[in-house]
Simulated assay, not measured.
Amino acid sequence: MIENTIARINELYHKSQKEGLTPEEKEEQAALRKEYIASVKRNLKGQLDNIDMVNADGTVTNLGEKYGNKGKHQN
């Protein structure tokens, strides 16, 4: 789905540069961009939630647990 969303965003961008967009297309473009950004944020949060940090004393802290994803991992 992400590939289709990106392709459509690009298509609308190129059309806007050549001939302009209808109001409906502008709304679609804004919605697609919002959807894409939300997806990127979800993916990044998922990756960051799975990072373990080794402290100087040898203990391991999961950043997801430390910063908001409580209870996912316990090391």
Rank of each mutant, 00 (worst) to 15 (best):
M1Y: 14
I2C: 04
I2F: 12
N4C: 06
T5Y: 07
T5G: 03
T5M: 15
I6V: 13
I6E: 13
A7S: 13
A7Q: 12
A7D: 10
R8C: 06
I9G: 05
I9Y: 03
I9R: 07
N10R: 12
E11Q: 12
L12W: 00
L12K: 01
L12P: 00
L12Q: 03
Y13E: 13
Y13A: 13
Y13H: 06
Y13L: 10
H14I: 05
H14E: 15
H14C: 04
H14F: 15
H14Y: 15
K15Q: 13
K15A: 04
K15V: 02
K15T: 00
S16N: 11
S16W: 01
S16E: 09
S16I: 01
Q17P: 00
Q17E: 14
Q17F: 04
K18S: 11
K18F: 06
G20E: 05
L21S: 03
T22K: 06
T22E: 10
P23M: 06
P23E: 14
P23H: 12
P23C: 00
E24A: 12
E25P: 01
E25I: 02
K26I: 04
K26H: 03
K26Y: 04
E27M: 09
E27I: 03
E28P: 03
E28Q: 07
Q29R: 10
Q29F: 15
A31M: 11
L32Y: 05
L32M: 02
L32V: 00
L32F: 05
R33I: 11
K34T: 07
K34I: 04
E35V: 01
E35C: 04
E35N: 09
E35D: 11
Y36T: 00
Y36H: 14
I37M: 15
A38M: 06
A38Y: 01
S39A: 14
S39N: 10
V40N: 11
V40T: 03
K41L: 10
K41T: 07
K41S: 05
R42V: 08
N43V: 10
L44W: 00
L44P: 00
L44R: 05
G46M: 05
G46F: 01
G46S: 08
G46R: 02
Q47L: 14
Q47F: 13
Q47N: 10
L48Y: 03
L48D: 08
I51F: 09
I51M: 07
D52V: 09
D52S: 13
D52P: 02
M53L: 15
M53S: 13
M53Q: 13
M53T: 07
M53A: 12
V54Y: 08
V54P: 00
V54L: 14
A56E: 15
A56C: 07
A56D: 15
A56P: 06
D57L: 04
G58S: 02
T59K: 09
V60C: 06
T61W: 07
T61S: 14
T61F: 06
T61L: 10
N62K: 09
N62L: 10
L63I: 05
G64Y: 00
G64M: 02
G64L: 06
E65C: 08
K66N: 12
Y67R: 06
Y67G: 08
Y67I: 06
G68W: 02
G68Q: 07
N69T: 05
N69V: 01
K70S: 12
K70G: 10
G71R: 05
K72T: 06
K72R: 10
H73G: 01
H73R: 08
H73F: 14
H73E: 14
Q74H: 10
Q74G: 10
Q74C: 11
Q74F: 09
N75G: 07
N75L: 10
